[in-house]
Design a binder for these strands. Sequence first.
DNA 1: TAGTGCATGTAATGCGTTACATGATTTC
DNA 2: GAAATCATGTAACGCATTACATGCACTA
Lengths: 178, 178
Amino acid sequence: MEDLNGTAYVVLGMLGLGARTGYDVKNIVDKSARFFWAASYGQIYPELRRLEQAGLVEGRSAPSGGRKRREFQLTEKGREELLGWLAQPAQMPELRDESLLKLFFSDALPREQALEQLRARREGHEEFLAFLRMVQAEPGGEDPPFVDLILRYGIAYAEFNVEWCKREEKRLSRKAAA
Amino acid sequence: MEDLNGTAYVVLGMLGLGARTGYDVKNIVDKSARFFWAASYGQIYPELRRLEQAGLVEGRSAPSGGRKRREFQLTEKGREELLGWLAQPAQMPELRDESLLKLFFSDALPREQALEQLRARREGHEEFLAFLRMVQAEPGGEDPPFVDLILRYGIAYAEFNVEWCKREEKRLSRKAAA
DNA sequence: TAGTGCATGTAATGCGTTACATGATTTC
DNA sequence: GAAATCATGTAACGCATTACATGCACTA
């Protein structure tokens, strides 16, 4: 087992799911994983090289017309690394949620502005929910079961947040009125 | 308005909530905000200096016995900065959840191991839930309303995750049996 | 022919953790 | 007298974003 960072496993995993180029990896991440794990070109391309040097992926030039292009695929070693990582339990995530931070400090704010923070959080999650429902409704090949599972998680998570905000908005308005 | 990072506002906010030293800030963060926004000494102390230079906090030496100690408090400018920041809407957070990432790639795994990932996620959130309930049950001064709101959010969030995992564990076991 | 998409990459900068280093005071 | 707690800080490293730079191919 190598000592790899999370981004390395995103790349390995996406190659496993059919991505061929760095560009592919980025697009698939943006379409399906961005909400729980983002990745930028500035990480992906250097990471592909490191993985190649470590023998976990194999790259070869595969130009399309006169356009430069590198295709990658998992090596046997790379597949093992991915499976080994998948088999280990994950760390609990450290959230970094600015909106919760603002709410946490909102005792310093007039009630109406604090309520506004709650509303803004709700609206953010409502938009997010709409986006995920759109993705879900898109035609095209069925997703693999666990890819679909995570999409449904995203939807459930957004719904939870919307409902929670609504509940607390009501509670707060009631209190303010009392 | 200065151009400050999130950690700066954590520090300002915690001083507003009664923290006096960098050490205080760290402890309060660990007790009440770590689950949605962590901060380490390596950020806090340099940040306090920057804030002092920017005139947002005021520090003075306040040794207790022969022990070196610096107390800080918000300046008027610092309080305004904090309030200004609180009044603006927050960005949607970018999650970075390794456990969701592993589930996302779990189609590559034998079903039983994938189920194990779900169970591990559930157990993580169960522990987290137990921890938050303990914090909630602790005696001691009542928390300000919004501090309490966020504690209740944490609990609701953990409960949501536990329930979601249970539901999906069942669904998956059913499928495997079919 | 202009715009969009495909494709690859680097450099600067900033954010954050970890490990290290030090030392006084209080409590058992 | 040992251990825990209070308290402050730095240095090295790693991770990630952003902005920049380049250029081909297809389509409207």
